[in-house]
Write a protein that binds this DNA or RNA. Structure first.
Length: 417
RNA sequence: GUGGGCGUAGCUCAGUUGGCUAGAGCGCCAGGUUGUGGUCCUGGAGGUCGCGGGUUCAAGCCCCGUCGUCCACCCCA
């Protein structure tokens, strides 16, 4: 056993998974940059207060914050998500609106780790600030759906809902509180605790005894005002025009307290574990204001990398890319030939690797095989003597000699480039 | 934070009712006569049995603690 291991809830991502991560982010970037979103790279930690504005009732904030005091006495926290940072950046830089950004990177939450849930976990996401145009809602949601399909996923279910405006939300919360309070005796003990904290969250309960109560609970639709209702209808209409399949789930409330109006969630229907939500988001029209900026509407989503990749595994989609070199150089003379040949090939845009330590021909050929290279170049005493190279395509038993001066041309020819 | 399962070579795991120098497969290394990998054969390296206590003549096997991991709950990506 090694003396040191990664901290709980963290891990190393090695090849080939690391290549898959990068490809994942590339696909995401391509998807959203096609719609005009630009990359933002916020810091990984901020003043604790930035995140406290997400709402004290949010568990991510109240229980799971990775915070500490730095040497300057500042109370900072590793970001639990990036929406707050993006809004803070908006207030700090005041870009022209609509401001459409995307991000990718790790977030931190101090939780008990499980599969699909880590203390350091990666998300990709987008945020769009400055307009409450329902077409923007549909664009954001549609990009999420588009991304999943670009990955090759087909079993992703999209649920949408509206929470109404700030006043509606509070009113609905009150309605729910009264409703559940009337039936408190049949409510699970966990949900009773939740009820006191945040009545909306009771709708999220997956506990058996609560299911019937939840099914019969009053729906938000009956509580919200006409304006929010009209907005929601427009969003649904725009989604239909985009051919984005969805289903309205009026029990969908989501974990962050800042959501207003549109909320949505992507669930993989092939994942077995409890962690089937692979992404989610919504409108957060009060957040910029809460961070000291002008009243600015905003909407966005975040998708979990780990969980989405688990979904990919389950669907047999988006395999890790093969990260192999094209040419492998075997040099049993002195190692210097391998160096100059590799150098020359790389300068010509051909990826090339070699063996070290002047090992036996057999060992070097074995390394060539392992490297996945499609071509091996062999330099032994004979080749060194005549200034030739033996070129061996790895998938055939045949090989031939080429003049050293024709190296690059011959290699490009064999690689068909 | 609560409850439960697990923790033996780099990896996946065996290890019988506690009993001699702890095993297998894969991987790795070296060979298999005269420079050549992917199959096959032979040999080799590699383990304070997570860690710390305890019970016992004797513990990888039992007990306690601790750490890690997995599963469920909570919550969420």
């Amino acid at each position: 056993m090694p003396e040191f291991k990664t901290s709980p809830g963290t891990r190393d991502i090695l090849a080939p998974d690391s290549g898959r991560w990068r490809a994942f982010q590339d696909v995401f970037a391509k998807t959203v940059e096609a719609a005009g979103y630009t990359l933002i790279i916020p810091p990984m930690f901020e003043d604790l207060d930035v995140f406290l504005r997400l709402g004290e009732a949010t568990e991510v904030v109240s229980k799971e914050m990775y915070d500490f005091h730095d040497k300057g006495g500042r109370h900072v926290a590793l970001r639990p998500e990036q929406t707050a940072s993006v809004c803070r950046a908006f207030v700090e830089h005041r870009p022209t609106t609509p401001w459409k950004v995307w991000y990718a990177g790790p977030n931190f939450r101090y939780e008990k780790p499980q599969q699909g849930r880590y203390r350091q976990f990666d998300q990709v996401g987008i945020e769009a600030l400055g307009t409450d145009d329902p077409f923007l809602d549909a664009e954001v949601i549609g990009l999420g759906a588009k991304f999943f399909s670009n990955l090759g996923l087909t079993r992703v279910k999209l649920s949408v809902n509206t929470l109404g405006d700030a006043g509606d939300r509070a009113r609905y919360s009150q309605v729910l509180f009264e409703y559940f309070s009337r039936h408190e005796s049949t409510l699970s003990s966990e949900s009773r605790a939740t009820l006191a904290r945040n009545p909306l969250r009771v709708l999220d309960s997956k506990r058996k005894p609560d299911q019937e109560l939840i099914a019969n609970a009053p729906a938000i639709r009956d509580t919200i005002g006409g304006e929010a209702k009209a907005h929601f209808e427009s969003v649904l209409g725009a989604l239909e025009a985009l051919n984005v399949p969805y289903q309205v789930n009026n029990r969908l409330v989501r974990g962050l307290d800042y959501y207003r109006r549109t909320t949505f969630e992507f669930v993989s229907t092939v994942l077995e574990s409890a962690h089937t939500a692979i992404g989610g988001g919504g409108r957060y029209d009060g957040l910029v204001e809460a961070l000291g900026g002008p009243a600015t509407p905003g909407i966005g989503f975040a998708l979990g990398l780990d969980r989405t990749l688990l979904a990919c595994d389950a669907e047999g989609a988006f395999a890790a890319p093969k990260n192999t070199v094209e040419v492998f150089v075997v040099d049993t003379v002195d190692g210097m030939h391998a160096q100059t040949i590799c150098n020359l090939l790389r300068a010509s845009g051909v990826t090339a690797d070699r063996a070290y330590d002047l090992r036996s021909m057999k060992a070097q050929m074995k390394a060539a095989d392992r490297s996945g290279a499609s071509v091996a170049l062999i330099i032994g005493p004979g080749e060194a003597q005549n200034s030739t190279i033996t070129l061996r395509p790895m998938n055939s038993g045949e090989q031939y000699s080429i003049p050293r001066s024709d190296l690059v041309g011959e290699v490009l020819k064999v690689l068909r480039r």
